[in-house]
Nucleic acid binder design. Structure first.
Lengths: 215, 215
DNA sequence: GTCTATAGCAGGATAGAC
DNA sequence: GTCTATCCTGCTATAGAC
């Protein structure tokens, strides 16, 4: 448990921080309250005093730390939408970059991505909240961003699938880091992330039919 | 535990089957040996008698059931490669379909996909085996399939990233089923899977630069 | 609010009868 | 090989001293 303990934070915050890290690493079931309190440098009973139970600690962590952080990704992308004059290449590149090298603090990037991916692949009671407050608005916003360029004859569903194909790549290269590193031999440093952003942008632009190949 | 018990199978097999289902559903840590033996309809001590420990049961399940099954996806795709005269559109469609509606028995499709995705996103000691025996050969095979069409000036790394972008979509629409259903309102019936296969194929062909848009 | 002590139970594993 | 009974550890949760 090499996690620094921030001993000036209040007990409650220390618990939330430690819980977040551990839940992200191992998953809810594999983490014990003892482990969390030890990592947080607080006494065992503190979790039940402050949160009532282990499950409610998870929910509190989710609502108070995870959700606010993921919501913070949206404003910059919304700003892009408001401007209204961006070109598709620029839009997609910004989108990809804003998620791949996201604005969360360095020590929380991996943690945040893992918690989201965990919740999406193994829904708990938080699944609905995550979908409706974060994921669906995000997808709709991206779809609205793209839709003017994709032609008016495209169905809603087709627009959605195209949006999801773009998101699929971002998600895959973001969450699948262990696999990608293993296969390419490249660690996720600034260099490689740049390259990934470029690749995903190009592939998606072509996939969306927004960039013509020589014919 | 509505799982039927196949009471004519030997104890060992019954345990492996139940373990597979439960590990896929809940993850290793969240499943107890008691739960497994109850679902299998055998006595509690059977796990330790036949496998030595819960962890070794997981490994046995992985090697004896999961790996052989995922390996069975390869031959049909390899056959495509051997023929050598397939066109890219056909190849990619076959590839997408062979994974999206895979050849595993109906009651094992979801289970198999979940176990793989679990192992890739939360590596245990089996991660290396899965990567080296299944994933890397699979990716290399697909890359070899595509490479003749992508032009000789494409770097190895670029070829790999393009391949992964295609796989990313297949993986996303396959593993992200709860999310996709939630956002589209479509259950994964034959109809929708057809539509997904078509979409992923088209998007990927364009993404790879293999299908020209009107210009 | 903090922490100790412990209740109460579920977990994996095992010994030994059959 | 099968199954019962049980050990013991480690878990969540709580009671109650400070």
């Amino acid at each position: 448990m090499p996690k620094p303990v921030n001993s000036h934070e209040p007990t409650k915050t220390r618990i939330l921080e430690a819980a977040e890290t551990l839940f992200a690493e191992k998953g809810y079931a594999a983490v014990s309250v003892r482990e969390i309190t030890a990592a947080a440098g607080v006494h065992l009973a503190a979790v039940n005093y402050h949160f009532g139970s282990k499950k409610r600690l998870y929910f509190a962590m989710f609502e108070q730390r995870l959700l606010p952080r993921v919501m913070s990704v949206r404003p910059p992308i919304e700003a892009l939408l408001q401007r209204g004059n961006a070109r598709p290449a620029e839009m997609i590149k910004t989108l990809v970059r804003s998620i791949l090298e996201n604005p969360w603090p360095d020590d929380r990037r991996q943690v945040t991505a893992r918690l989201i991916s965990r919740e999406l692949s193994q829904p708990t009671e938080m699944f609905d909240i995550l979908i409706e407050t974060y994921f669906r608005p995000m997808v709709q916003m991206i779809a609205r961003l793209l839709s003017p360029f994709l032609g008016p004859d495209m169905t809603e569903e087709s627009l959605l699938l195209n949006t999801l194909s773009t998101i699929a790549q971002i998600t895959y290269f973001s969450n699948g880091q262990p696999v990608v590193t293993r296969l390419t031999g490249r660690p996720y440093d600034a260099d490689f992330i740049d390259q990934l952003v470029g690749h995903i942008t190009d592939f998606s632009l072509r996939g969306l039919g927004l960039e013509r190949k020589p014919c």
